[in-house]
Design a protein around this nucleic acid. Structure first.
Length: 426
RNA sequence: GUGGACGUAGCUCAACGGCAGAGCUCUCGGUUGUGGUCCGAGCGGUUGUGGGUUCGAAUCCCAUCGUCCACCCCA
């Protein structure tokens, strides 16, 4: 056994046997996104640390406690991306996408990094499938993004999901909300837990998602305080979003306590979770200030990110019928040196005819080769021994019932074709 | 970052101070050139790592790395 080589904490090897789930999520995501007119974007896995400090927020846990940052060999401060939005926005600005017709619709799929204590569904390198729509401020696009991601989860075959939604107001209403919230919380300071007292000073909005039992009654009311203090514009905007969702037939749950851990959110925030158990599988919201904050023109935007590992976990626990991996449809068995040479030609012939051909040329006995064929789930075998070399023929064996016949070489392809067709029709 | 549980064969686990085992997987066999089921054999471990206690440690103690769980936070 190897001694000390093991993967770094919180990382994962995603092995071939797992890939059917990853393909399922990735392919479904791509199909939904392309159909909805989003274009794929690939941005760097690492960026200047400053991008995340400014974009995500210096005081957020993600940046202050969880970021992977280091100096590269030139002494530049570099960070592995902890989320996808900041990089996409940077790219939007840097590539002049604000000069293109708006909105600009982008999607991505990639790994993110957070230095956090690993737990179920939580890794230090994890994958997110994300979508961003930049350059349009209209409640209908918020609703559309929500509709699209719900369509994605539905197409995956997931049940029992709901989207919770809330508004935390635009930038202009933020100071008023903060003040009102702090006033309210101060008045109930005695009944708050220690964490909440700390959060109150740092980021009062975060008090809202405190799970401490003793805080519940206060926090429930605090959610109302936020909504009551939205300015008219924000209130109207939120109302419209909900109306559009109703019109589109998208079910949602209002959650006045829903807030997000990243500083850049404004207006609508939402999170997709299981109805039973409240496992979060994705989250998003509007971020109208971020493009400007990162040095671009004042540009509204809205986005969402799917937690891929958690989504796959749900796909498994819900027993979703995921497409099976492709099986080879014909297996070539060889016996003896001459036969091996002929097998190479036969394999090439079948391959060119478009079949998925499998073989085990490194094995000697028919027995072990057929075992491999069986394990691969192949239904048809072409067997070539010395006898077949001399008689210019092959044996074609149906592995489902064991029936086999000797076929002269020039009829090989036609017979394979016929046999596979018969199988399909059965 | 805090608290707790746990690391034995590729996988799932047993042995709980006295010879490190089973099932599954894998490899090879079960006469002339034929898979799945069945039968047999074989491969595979300095018991995560490093110390300590002991005549003797997988077993007890300490450290360390890792996994899981609950916090924190989040996807």
């Amino acid at each position: 056994m190897g001694r000390s080589l093991q993967k770094p904490r919180g990382t994962q090897d995603i092995l071939p046997s797992e890939q059917r789930y990853w393909f399922w999520v990735e392919d479904t995501w791509r199909e939904i996104m392309l159909a909805a007119g989003f274009g794929r974007i690939i941005t760097p896995t690492f960026e200047d640390t400053d991008l995340f400090v400014r974009g995500v927020g210096e005081t957020t846990d993600i940046v202050s406690k969880e970021i992977y940052s280091f100096k590269d060999r030139s002494g530049n401060a570099i960070a592995l991306r902890p989320e996808g939005t900041a990089g996409v926005v940077r790219s939007y600005i840097e590539n002049g996408m604000h000069k293109e017709p708006q909105p600009v619709k982008l999607y991505y799929f990639g790994s993110m990094f957070r230095y956090d204590r690993p737990q179920a569904g939580r890794y230090r390198e994890f994958y997110q499938a994300g979508v961003e729509l930049l350059g349009e401020l209209d409640p209908i696009v918020d609703a559309q993004i929500i509709a699209i991601v719900m369509k994605f989860y539905a197409k995956l075959g997931l049940k029992d999901l709901t989207v919770q939604i809330n508004s935390i107001g635009d930038a202009k209403s933020r100071p008023k909300i903060h003040r009102a919230l702090i006033d309210f919380l101060s008045a109930h300071r005695r009944s708050l837990c220690e964490d909440c007292k700390r959060r109150m000073a740092k980021n009062p909005l975060r008090v809202l998602d405190c799970k401490e039992k003793s805080c519940q009654s206060v926090v429930d009311e605090a959610g109302g305080v936020v909504l009551d203090n939205l300015n008219t514009e924000s209130k109207n905007y939120f109302t419209k979003v909900l109306e559009y969702l109703d019109d589109m037939g998208v079910e949602y749950e209002l959650n006045p306590r829903l807030v997000r851990g990243l500083d850049y959110y404004t207006h609508t925030v939402f999170e997709v979770m299981t109805k039973t158990g409240g496992l979060s599988v994705g989250a998003g919201g509007r971020y109208d200030g971020l493009v400007k904050l990162l040095g671009g023109p004042d540009t509204p935007a809205v986005g969402f990110a799917v937690g891929v590992e958690r989504t796959i976990e749900l796909v498994k626990t819900q027993g979703v019928n995921v497409p099976e991996p492709m099986r080879p449809n014909v297996f070539v068995v060889q016996l003896g040196d001459e036969a091996k040479k002929k097998a190479i030609l036969v394999i090439d012939q079948l391959d060119k005819a478009g079949y998925q051909v499998a073989h085990a040329l490194g094995r000697g006995s028919i027995k072990s080769q057929l075992r491999v064929a069986d394990r691969l789930g192949t239904n048809l075998a072409v067997i070539i021994g010395e006898r077949e070399v001399h008689s210019k023929s092959v044996i074609i064996r149906d592995l489902t019932d064991g029936a086999q016949e000797s076929i002269i070489d020039r009829d090989m392809l036609r017979t394979v074709q016929r046999k596979l067709k018969e199988r399909k029709n059965r």
